[in-house]
Structure formats: C-alpha cells, structure tokens
C-alpha cells in the first residue's frame, strides 16, 4: 500500500466503528466491553435503550469515568480505570462475576482481536512469540461463556496484513466463538460457510474489502452502506 492511500484511506474512524457496534446492543442487554475501542461503544448506544455493563472484577452496572478528582481507587473496571456506578449497580466477588460469564448470563461481549478466522476462531492474547510473557486475563472465559461475541478491530494490521483470515496463525483465545466483526471497512458476519460481508463503509468497494481479507467473503444480497454519523 502506498503512503498516499494510508493517509487518505477511506473507512470508518474508531468512534464510528464503536458507533456501528453500539447500534446492535438491544434494550435490556447485559454487556461486557473489552479494553480499547470496545470501551467506546457505551457512548453511542441509542437513547432509550437501557444497558447494564458488567466488568470482570465484580461490578455490575457501572457507568462512565468520574470527573477528575472524583476517582476512587477501589472502584475500577477490568482495565483498572476508575468508573462510576449507575442506579441499580451491584458488587460481587470474582467467582460470582465469572459465574455471570461462564453461566451464560451476559448477553453480549465486544472484544478487540489480533486475528479472526472464517470459522469464528479468535486470537487476541498472544503472538506466540517465545520471548513474550503470556497474559490471558479474562478473554478466554468471556469468549467461552458469553452468548454473543462481537469483535471490533481495524481490518488490517498497521503494516497492512489482514486480520480476517482463513485460519488464525496466533495461539487461539477461543474456537468458533465470534459472531460478528466491525472493522473500519465493513461489518462481517461469521456464517456457516465463512465470512459474510453485510455492510460496507462509505467510499469503500467490495473488491477493496476482499483484497484486505485473507479468506473468501460471501457478499450479502442486501449489502448495505454503513450510515455512521460524520464527525465522530
């Protein structure tokens, strides 16, 4: 890819990707958001939908970050960032928090990814580099336990390598777990026969998305353009 195309690249901004994912969160959902772009999703859930956010370290019903100066070191999320409480919040210990996950009580989890395979396999914890210190956190529990797993990720790595591929090359986080992927270029579902291109970013064509995906894309008959608000 030329430098030109990198700088003037069409596609969604990170907040626009989060906005698109937020449209799929239904009223009354119990949701766990991963660190990074997934965290942003909470800002864009359409008005009128009441959503309860869960965080692995035992807070159900947390809200946005506190005003500066109001941080409480004993009220943090799984990213170890200060949060606030919403009315109806509850504290639980770690085993109960993961019982909510493992027991199938959390409706939706949105995570980042290093690689996603056409069969729904997810790799997001390790490159397998022998020098790397392994660190898995709660990701394996989330993908195995939460009913619907969505991924938000840039379509390719910084150097342009595809992140959506036939088979993951990195060590897996979970097998066949991903249902839908939101990228800067597209919304892609994991179907019975591989990736299904459902929606495409404005100014991006199907061929470009396919070129940047290392597995065949089945184009949905009702392929739509993502209508993310400008200026996000």
């Amino acid at each position: 890819m030329s430098d030109d195309r990198k700088t003037a690249r069409p596609g969604l901004s990170r907040p626009q990707m989060a906005w698109r994912a937020a449209q799929d969160i239904f009223d009354g959902a119990y949701v766990n958001l991963g660190i990074g772009i997934p965290e942003m999703v909470a800002r864009f859930v359409p008005e009128g939908r009441e959503v309860i956010y869960h965080t692995e370290n035992g807070v159900l019903g947390f809200g946005p970050p506190p005003e500066p100066g109001q941080e409480d070191p004993e009220l943090i999320n799984a990213g170890k960032k200060p949060v606030t409480l919403r009315p109806g919040a509850a504290f639980v210990h770690h085993a109960d928090s993961f019982a909510m996950i493992r027991g199938g009580h959390i409706d939706i989890c949105i995570l980042g990814a290093m690689q996603v395979a056409a069969n729904g396999d997810l790799a997001n914890w390790s490159t397998g580099d022998p020098d790397a210190i392994p660190a898995v956190g709660g990701a394996m529990d989330l993908v195995a336990g939460v009913r619907r797993i969505f991924v938000i990720t840039s379509h390719t790595t910084r150097d342009g390598s595809p992140k959506l591929m036939e088979r993951c090359g990195y060590p897996l986080t979970g097998v066949g777990v991903v249902e839908r992927i939101y990228t800067d270029l597209a919304v892609v579902d994991v179907g019975d026969d591989g990736f299904v291109l459902r929606e495409i970013a404005p100014g991006v064509d199907v061929q470009t998305v396919q070129e940047r995906t290392a597995a065949p894309l089945h184009v949905a008959e009702d392929l739509r353009t993502i209508a993310a608000p400008d200026g996000l």
């Binding site: 928090s97 993961f98 493992r102 396999d121 898995v136 394996m140 529990d141």
Partner: peptide, 26 residues
C-alpha cells in the same frame, strides 16, 4: 484464565477437587 483462577479458588474453598469448564478449550 481469570475466571478459571477464580473458580479454582472457589472450588478449593468449597471442597470440590476439580471441575469442568469450556474456558480455554482449543
């Protein structure tokens, strides 16, 4: 994995020697 860690500790406290989980399979 974090949830497996928590459950292993709970099991230890509850006198359950082992348990099965889908976490980490594959």
């Amino acid at each position: 994995p974090q949830g497996t860690l928590a459950e292993r500790i709970r099991a230890g406290g509850a006198g359950v020697p082992a348990f099965f989980t889908a976490t980490s399979v594959g």
